[in-house]
């Protein structure tokens, strides 16, 4: 344990530190509560989207299967050539309780059949439907990417805050407190010592007053000896 200088000044400083730490701890606790609340809110959202995504993926897979079975796989693939293209998304950010969270641009991937790049005349509705379902799935995936990242970030923040609170509560505050206690003890001890010494001095003086001849015999009382005694 770091030795503190057992002075009153130090004590005052430590007390102030303790107070600050405790205040900080309370604040962090509050933040954590708020974050946890937010976390659960988002988590509900995520698990709902996840279920939705699972369901959507099943449906999409199903409709793709039907499309592949009824129209030849090469027809489906040919149609996919027509629709194949890159996808770019803008990502911005926002703050939740000081946590930076991404915001992904809500661009609908789902297209109308007329925007897929193939002629609707010769592409069957089954392929359309499969495409549509997968586009829907992609929409969900993008939405989920946003919320899930937020969730992860907030979760991280909660953990960090908790660590901080724990550090304050279990390390810093006890440490400060014990230091303060030590200082206080030391000061108290010194006060008691002084008191005793004063009492002793007083006794000697009193004795000298009773026998003045003895005064010469008695060693002179110097402030230093008082201190060192």
């Amino acid at each position: 344990m770091e030795q503190a200088n057992p002075t009153r000044m130090e004590l005052i400083r430590k007390s102030a530190q303790i107070k600050l730490a405790e205040q900080g701890r309370d604040l962090l606790r509050e933040k954590m509560d708020a974050l946890i609340q937010e976390f659960f809110r988002i988590m509900q959202n995520v698990s709902r989207s996840r279920d939705e995504l699972d369901a959507m993926a099943d449906v999409a897979q199903q409709s793709l299967l039907i499309a592949l079975a009824t129209d030849d796989p090469v027809t489906v693939k040919s149609a996919s050539f027509a629709t194949k293209r890159g996808l770019s998304l803008d990502i911005t950010g926002k703050n939740i309780m000081g946590v930076p969270v991404p915001v992904i641009e809500k661009k609908r991937i789902s297209k109308s059949v007329f925007e897929r790049g193939y002629s609707i005349i010769s592409v069957s509705g089954r392929i359309d439907e499969a495409a549509e379902k997968f586009e829907g799935e992609l929409d969900l995936v993008i939405g989920l990417a946003e919320t899930e990242t937020a969730l992860k970030r907030i979760g991280g923040e909660i953990q960090m805050t908790r660590r901080r609170v724990n550090a304050l509560e279990q390390v810093l505050i006890p440490q400060l407190k014990s230091q303060a206690k030590y200082i206080k003890n030391t000061i108290d001890e010194r006060e008691r010592e002084d008191l005793f010494r004063l009492k002793k001095v007083k006794k000697i003086i009193d004795r000298k007053k009773k026998a003045p001849g003895d005064v010469a015999a008695a060693p002179p009382v110097t402030p230093s000896s008082i201190v060192s005694g």
């Binding site: 040919s78 050539f81 194949k84 293209r85 010769s122």
Partner: peptide, 10 residues
């Protein structure tokens, strides 16, 4: 022909 065009397009 459509398939070839689509393929060439991408």
């Amino acid at each position: 022909i459509k398939t070839i065009l689509r393929g060439k397009n991408i």
